[in-house]
Write a protein that binds this DNA or RNA. Structure first.
Lengths: 186, 186
DNA sequence: GTCTATATCCGGATAGAC
DNA sequence: GTCTATCCGGATATAGAC
């Protein structure tokens, strides 16, 4: 694993979350890292390769988080809170969620990037549905309707919550976050 | 009011909602309308003028909707449903909400476009808060917490609901929509 | 693995004719 | 109000040297 490659992935992701996929260039990355344009192309021949790799990276980190929570035997509340923590951190750093960022530019993405984004979104919805379901069965959560619909609602709140809060006032995300928690309490 | 100008505004908005602000060019517009690049620049000298004007247009349409609802004396449920209808229509047309589209690319927008977007978002949140508040006082709605937090939550659901539904499955937006309604029922 | 150099193309924008 | 023509800069991408 090359360090430069890691740095490119990290910076590329930051640019997507802060400015958007179509608003950054390889020059933005190379100048920031003190390398040349061509060096970035060495690792990621085309921009779509970089985009797709960034999503793959996010999938890996998501899976690591799940492993970690399984190891530590988090209950469903704990798992949900751990997930929310990512969003709270993003909010602090003026970053939005990658699902919302790339989702907004979806029609302009390459086919491989689209597929990877769909894969990641599907994984998150599936996981969220499952813990909402298990948690309700245990009496930890209370909500109306089926688990998948509730997962979609909660994920939507988080995704656009970051977008709106960055636009208006960061404390708005706190408000949304608290409402989500309160709504789930039995 | 020039017809060409109207067409540019309309098409520009469609491109923002379908592909994203940074993913369309003046060429996209001129070729589609059968005119030349320079003609678009005649109406909107710089792209940021077009972006800002599109938001101003959206604000006007929002105000018209409010007037219309006042004239017809819609109650709070009726007003909320009319608002939701816009989103259901967008979902059908593979468009997302302009707040989410431009919000995702916020950091890359010009200052005037940013300001206009903030203005529009503020107006919507304020209006939504007020009908949620009035409706609850009348016993039409039921929800936990203050009206503004609830408005932020609902708006977030709608905004990212469209993003996620376009990405995954259009019927996902239906599910979110129904959950929102059910949650508000007394 | 990173560089220089370059090719190619595209996007935003303007000047001036009609 | 729309056109032709053009400029400039920037973005993606590649070839080949080191």
């Amino acid at each position: 694993m090359s360090l430069t490659r890691e740095k490119i992935l990290e910076l590329g992701e930051e640019l997507i979350l802060k400015r958007g996929y179509n608003a950054f260039s390889y020059q933005d990355i190379s100048s920031e890292l003190g390398i040349k344009n061509a060096a970035v192309h060495y690792y990621f021949p085309a921009k779509e390769n970089l985009g797709t790799s960034i999503i793959k990276n996010n999938i890996l980190r998501f899976e690591e988080m799940l492993d970690n929570m399984n190891t530590r035997e988090f209950d469903e509340w704990g798992q949900l809170e751990a997930f929310f923590k990512f969003y709270l951190k993003s909010n602090r750093e003026d970053k939005i969620c990658i699902l919302g960022s790339l989702g907004s530019e979806f029609q302009s993405l390459s086919e491989s990037t689209k597929r990877e984004l769909q894969k990641m979104t599907g994984m998150i919805i599936e996981w969220l549905s499952s813990i909402l379901d298990k948690g309700r069965n245990k009496g930890l959560f209370k909500y109306i309707g089926d688990a998948k619909s509730r997962a979609l609602l909660i994920l939507s709140c988080l995704v656009a919550g970051l977008q709106l809060a960055r636009l208006m006032d960061k404390s708005d995300f706190k408000a949304i976050h608290l409402q989500l928690l309160d709504d789930l309490k039995p």
